[in-house]
């Protein structure tokens, strides 16, 4: 029985992998690929925030601005200095990590909703820097004419080609994320979320891990920013705000707080729904609000909890079957 499940699992993984590989060819038009690329970028954001918030309990609501730090770093390096993609991407990540670490400093003094407010304020202040420092950032008009990457002579000049870059980054982000949350770092994160004082007494260097949590979400946001800037070739400050952080937060909540698959499910679900529900315009947003409340009240663990419940039900059902059989045999 177990073996069959395992084989089925591998078949499923393979099928998904194949689907992901050929996706640009089976898409009906370029717009669809663009949407998928967008999903990839939001996926990075939601993975990063889920690690910081869902695991470590660190409210990093400056995420929107950190995303902007990544995007502006890449855009400026690219347009002003002509730094190529494979160098400006890591530099954007580093820039966002450093800023994120600073955003995390208040977590030494304040916690829970106070920390949420402090990070919101810091994020909005950073956004205002983007808006006001016109000579550098282009102000409210933003930065245009960003080149799409050219990797070692091979131009990545359309959505289909860019898709593979995003795919690699998302897979990398997921695998690294799993490695982070699955072992020592993840346990330390959860320890400081579950019981801060007890974590200290167990030798967890809480200050270090708090900053690390912020830095990790910063790294994901930085990567997402660099990818976003070079995908859209144009950026402006209005998307790098608290609102974006809220959207990511909603994705995590719907998918499952403290679960990486939850991040994936939530992000894909919300963005795909977003495309299909465009016809309803504003009513769609009202529906979002209702969905959030329904999830909070009736499914606080998100969609993955639903899957978990189903799995435990299936286990019990299987256990019941085998037990029934052995009972029958015994009888």
């Amino acid at each position: 029985m177990k073996k069959i499940t395992r084989i089925l699992r591998w078949i499923l993984i393979l099928a998904v992998a194949c689907l992901m590989l050929v996706l640009p060819w089976i898409a009906q038009n370029r717009y669809q690929v663009h949407i998928v690329n967008n999903i990839g970028i939001w996926l990075l954001l939601s993975l990063g925030l889920n690690i910081a918030m869902g695991y470590a309990g660190q409210y990093n609501l400056a995420l929107g601005a950190l995303w902007g730090v990544g995007a502006y770093t890449a855009a400026l390096l690219q347009t002003r200095l002509g730094v190529p993609f494979w160098i400006n991407l890591p530099l954007s990540i580093i820039a966002a990590v450093i800023i994120a670490a600073f955003v995390g400093l208040p977590s030494f003094k304040v916690r829970s909703h106070y920390l949420a407010l402090v990070t919101i304020a810091l994020g909005e202040a950073m956004n205002l820097v983007l808006v006001n420092e016109t000579p550098i950032t282009g102000g409210a008009d933003g930065i245009g004419h960003i080149q799409m990457p050219n990797l070692f002579g091979f131009p990545i000049n359309n959505d289909e080609r860019y898709y593979y870059i995003i795919l690699i980054m998302v897979i990398l982000g997921y695998v690294v994320g799993r490695q982070i949350v699955g072992h020592r770092i993840g346990r330390a994160f959860r320890a400081l979320r579950d019981d801060f004082q007890a974590a200290r007494a167990m030798g967890v260097n809480t200050g270090f891990y708090q900053i690390l949590a912020f830095a990790i979400s910063g790294a994901y946001a930085g990567a997402a920013g660099a990818l976003y800037a070079q995908l859209n070739t144009y950026i402006s400050p209005d998307i790098f705000t608290f609102n974006s952080a809220l959207i990511v937060l909603t994705m995590i909540l719907v998918g499952g707080m403290g679960s990486l698959p939850g991040s994936v499910v939530g992000t894909v679900l919300l963005l795909v729904l977003n495309e299909y529900l465009q016809v309803f315009q504003r009513w769609q947003l009202v529906g979002y609000g209702i969905a959030i409340i329904v999830v909070v009240l009736f499914l606080p663990g998100g969609v993955v909890e639903l899957a978990r419940k189903f799995e435990s039900f299936r286990q019990r059902w299987l256990a019941g079957l085998t037990k029934g059989k052995s009972d029958a045999e015994a009888g």
């Binding site: 579950d194 019981d195 007890a198 974590a199 967890v204 403290g258």
Partner: peptide, 17 residues
């Protein structure tokens, strides 16, 4: 005790450092 963790994980946290 860390409320989201198994007994084993509780001990592993303490060994982490």
């Amino acid at each position: 005790l860390f409320k989201s963790m198994t007994v084993m994980e509780n001990l592993l946290v303490a060994m982490g450092y």
